[in-house]
């Protein structure tokens, strides 16, 4: 419940300019020079910050630079502090995926091989293509945004095309491709928890790599653990917290810590949580 409230607040601050949906405008203030920690399209009329993946490609594909120190610095800072807790607590598109997953349906598991796809997407579409596939002026296009990102189609494309007649006239094969990817994502999220997050999200790949060192971490007290397996069974990201507390897939949602009958699991920045839970239990 606490996590849902934080997610809703994060969604709200990321998309505070709701009135822009009416006129089909996008927010153009100075706050957009700052990157949102989670995936949130900056072409969404309500968006108040820049999408870090879009910003990274914009700088990587610019005429002046081939690498964005600014955006990578932002991602390293968020990553070392929170790791994939950003995905679990702050990412607006993560919340959308979780809500879609609530649609009643049989829930499926994801084959492990698909988890590696997001690293390929990160390297090819975010770093390589914007730098190498350039025009005569030396400018590259944001390949991930252009060919894959379903958040852009959902948050930016659909609302803007709904309000701009001149944009609707330019719809072509590319938009059909992006709509197909959006539909695939929605269907995937109905059956598989955070389908896009786990298979295609380059931001999830970056934060996942930083999970091993992030200050927000998961810790298992092996002296308390009785290997009941409850934590592994409750994890929707299909992580075994006892064996892999630093797994790149763990979004630090805390479900394992809540279910643990021995309070052996700690998720957070400090060890205070376990002491508090012990005190609560004794009361």
């Amino acid at each position: 419940m606490k996590r849902k409230i934080v997610q809703i607040i994060a969604f709200g601050y990321s998309n505070a300019h709701l009135l822009n949906f009416k006129g089909g405008k996008i927010y153009q203030g100075k706050w957009k020079q700052f990157c949102n920690p989670g995936l949130n399209c900056y072409s969404c009329p309500a968006a108040g910050f820049a999408c870090p993946i879009g910003a990274l490609q914009a700088v990587n594909g610019s005429m002046e630079f081939q690498f964005s120190f600014y955006v990578v610095g932002v991602l390293l800072a968020f990553g070392v502090l929170l790791g994939r807790a950003v995905c679990g607590w702050l990412c607006p598109f993560g919340l959308i995926q979780e809500l879609i997953h609530r649609i009643p349906s049989p829930k499926l598991r994801l084959k492990k091989i698909f988890l590696y796809l997001k690293y390929l997407v990160l390297v090819v579409f975010v770093f390589v293509l914007p730098v190498t596939a350039t025009n005569y002026m030396g400018m590259g296009k944001p390949a991930f945004c252009q060919y894959i990102c379903p958040a852009g189609t959902l948050q930016g494309g659909i609302p803007l095309l709904g309000t701009h007649e001149e944009l609707r006239r330019t719809i072509g094969a590319l938009f059909s491709l992006k709509m197909a990817i959006l539909l695939l994502t929605i269907v995937g999220c109905i059956f598989i928890y955070r389908f896009f997050c786990r298979t295609l999200c380059p931001l999830g790949a970056i934060y996942g790599l930083m999970n091993k060192v992030s200050l927000c971490h998961l810790e298992v007290d092996k002296n308390r653990c009785v290997n009941c397996g409850k934590c592994k069974n409750i994890c929707k990201m299909e992580v075994d917290p006892v064996r892999e507390p630093d797994s790149a897939e763990c979004i630090r949602c805390g479900a394992c810590a809540q279910i643990c009958p021995k309070n052996a699991i700690d998720v957070g920045l400090t060890k205070q949580d376990r002491k508090c839970r012990d005190a609560e239990k004794s009361v």
Binding site: K32, F49, Y70, P142, C145, T153
Partner: peptide
């Protein structure tokens, strides 16, 4: 080195690639 201006410039204009038209 001025990367912030590039980010801001990209973010305050409708990104046609992002919405599937670019």
């Amino acid at each position: 080195r001025g990367e912030v201006e590039i980010v801001l410039n990209k973010a305050v204009n409708i990104c046609l690639e992002c919405i599937g038209l670019g």
